[in-house]
Amino acid sequence: MNKCCCNAKLKLIYSCSGAANTGEMADQISRKLAKEGYGNMTCLASVGAHISGFVESAKRADENITIDGCSVACAKKILEHIGVTPTKSYALTEMGVEKGKTPSNEEIISKISNKIKKDLPLKADQENNAEGDKNSGCSCCSC
């Protein structure tokens, strides 16, 4: 969670985490990106279950990023069901992964993660870039 209401862009990452190798990889890639500071991973299932806190957070987020295993794009569609269009959405099968065939291992996870990272700025970099806005408009806290 963000420390306070004004200090950061809220960038949420959702993974389909499906049963196939593709879902497994989507989950691992999402966790890796979150650990490396590309956003906060949050629960897609809770959004699908319409748990109000998750739904409202998705609606309020500056960016919602979906990482799906395949082109069925369940993560993307779940967000669309609550009226949120993902800022960016990825499907691993469109990035060289074959459903039911490509092994889920560290090499593939790193390779695909690196492709996504090229497309996603680090959260901290975005916050630094937003410094001007923060100083001019924020009366929220002393962060």
């Binding site: 969670m1 963000n2 209401c5 748990i51 109000s52 806190g53 998750f54 957070s57 609606k59």
Partner: peptide
């Protein structure tokens, strides 16, 4: 309590909850 806030699934504050339902988050 940050843990209680997270239990609601709220990723950004402030948030307002009425009878257990989050009505708004982040504004």
């Amino acid at each position: 309590d940050i843990n209680k806030i997270i239990d609601y699934g709220v990723m950004v504050t402030p948030a307002l909850v009425i009878d257990g339902e989050v009505k708004v988050a982040g504004k």
